[in-house]
């Protein structure tokens, strides 16, 4: 068994696609019209055949209270690996991305948490640099 797809609920699929590609740097994999929404996925350019992230419409009434409660407590819904959290924090901050948690040393990794502007918090991690 392999993990090939995970999803995040997004307020607006087109805005989400722009954020996840233009800002975070993922690439669009599938964009298939499906009723009034799309089967919309992105992948990492470093792993185009790897796991896909589905940008799923947040229309279900259960989504808002669920996400509001998590975001209020600063809890991320998804995690991405980067080479260097500090460098990525600097790059994304310059692009206007808001972090709810700046780079934090948690022992084995550095981590930070950002707002994806589509209703979710996203955790980024990198291995701690030696020395």
């Amino acid at each position: 068994m392999r993990i090939n797809l995970v999803s995040v609920f997004v307020d607006d699929q087109r805005a989400a696609l722009a954020f996840y590609t233009d800002i975070l740097g993922f690439t669009k994999k599938h964009d298939i019209p499906l009723g009034d929404a799309s089967w919309l996925t992105v992948v990492s350019p470093e792993a185009p055949d790897g796991a896909e992230l589905l940008l799923e419409p947040a229309g279900h009434p259960a989504v808002k209270p669920y996400r509001d409660a998590l975001v209020e407590d600063g809890i991320p819904l998804v995690q991405f690996a980067v080479d260097d959290v500090e460098a990525e924090h600097a790059r994304l901050t310059a692009l206007g991305v808001v972090f709810t948690q700046p780079p934090t040393d948690v022992g084995t990794v550095m981590m930070a948490v950002l707002d994806d502007t589509c209703g979710n918090l996203v955790q980024i991690v990198s291995p701690k640099s030696a020395g």
């Binding site: 407590d73 600063g74 809890i75 709810t100 948690q101 700046p102 934090t104 981590m111 948490v113």
Partner: peptide
């Protein structure tokens, strides 16, 4: 040491540090 933390950040530093 770092003012202005979410519950998530406080929990993660308490357990890891």
């Amino acid at each position: 040491a770092r003012d202005g933390q979410t519950l998530f950040e406080i929990c993660s530093t308490l357990s890891t540090r």
